[in-house]
């Protein structure tokens, strides 16, 4: 005979998870926020925030005579502005295009390899892809008669090389999610549209895109989060250089923490990344809530 659960049963079962969350998530988070307000002498202060936000490593909108570096914050924003639409649309295009192609599954597996690979290895591969003498990018450019160079070595191209190089690492993620989403759309919608004389483009725009909206929210949110915390690729490919022209927030946090030994400034960058991440995650949380309703 089943007994009715008492309120304390609920507590017993949730306690281990709560304890783990408290030790490994909440305490480090709160401690980081606290650290961001602690000065070197141990007093509470806002000077860490002032120093970080005034630093040219973080925010340098004028750049060097209008050229890179513009500061890690703007570099991250550029990463989002370029990488997010490309990976989202490329993933959608590949998912739709490869859906009914013979051998599409195998092609998808190859594309997804970029996601399976550790990002640190991906970063090394990007470095070699854009290398002046052995890079595949230069081989292609050279074939068409364009000049070749080590693209990650120049201030004007270093950041863009990393952004475009990372597209193949992340496009597999959106492609797989969209592929799964496509399977959930009933075929009858397309059949009805075909009977009504709708073109392929119209069916794509009026049926596929709207019905994939929940997937798009997930893809955009997850990609945004990835772009905000991007570190490993930059660390191994350029170390933020040359001259800080490909620096990003997470790398700057690392430099503050482990090169300058300044936990306060590192904590400020961590708090900023967390705030941006929360802002990006809100649509995902709302979308999940809507679906539950």
């Amino acid at each position: 005979m089943l007994r009715k659960a008492k309120p304390y049963h609920f507590g017993i079962f949730i306690l281990p998870a709560l304890a783990l969350m408290a030790v490994f998530v909440m305490y480090p988070t709160l401690r980081t926020v606290f650290l961001s307000f602690v000065a070197e002498d141990g007093s509470l202060t806002l000077s860490n925030y002032a120093e970080v936000l005034r630093s040219r490593d973080i925010f340098n909108p004028g750049g060097y005579e209008g050229d890179f570096p513009f500061g890690a914050l703007i570099h991250n924003a550029l990463w989002i502005a370029i990488h997010l639409p490309i990976t989202t649309f490329l993933g959608l295009f590949l998912a739709v295009f490869l859906r009914n192609v013979k051998g599409g599954g195998i092609v998808k597996s190859f594309i997804f390899l970029g996601m399976v690979m550790p990002m640190i290895v991906g970063g090394i591969m990007i470095r070699f892809m854009f290398d002046g003498s052995v890079g595949v990018v230069n081989m292609a450019l050279g074939f068409f008669g364009f000049p070749t160079q080590t693209w990650t070595a120049y201030p004007e191209t270093a950041l863009f090389s990393l952004i475009f190089g990372s597209v193949w690492l992340w496009a597999g993620f959106s492609m797989i999610l969209y592929s799964a989403g496509l399977e959930t759309i009933p075929n009858m919608y397309y059949e009805a549209a075909r009977i009504d004389g709708a073109s392929r483009i119209k069916m794509f725009l009026k049926i596929t895109v709207p019905l994939l909206k929940p997937i798009t929210v997930v893809v955009v949110t997850m990609t945004l989060l990835w772009e905000l915390k991007i570190f490993d690729i930059v660390y191994v490919a350029t170390m933020g250089g040359p001259g800080g022209t490909s620096n990003v927030l997470a790398l700057q946090m690392y430099l503050y923490a482990f090169r300058e030994w300044d936990p306060g400034k590192a904590a400020v960058v961590a708090v900023l990344i967390t705030l941006f991440t929360l802002l990006a995650a809100i649509p995902l949380i709302r979308s999940a809530g809507d679906e539950a309703e």
């Binding site: 060097y64 070595a153 250089g241 040359p242 001259g243 430099l255 090169r259 300058e260």
Partner: peptide, 25 residues
């Protein structure tokens, strides 16, 4: 050493490809 060392290396990488930026380096 310290934070200056990687900054030195990074600025030299910039100088190597953009020697005209010597002043800023």
């Amino acid at each position: 050493g310290g934070a200056w060392q990687p900054a030195f290396w990074d600025q030299l990488k910039l100088l190597w490809v953009r020697p005209g930026r010597l002043d800023s380096v």
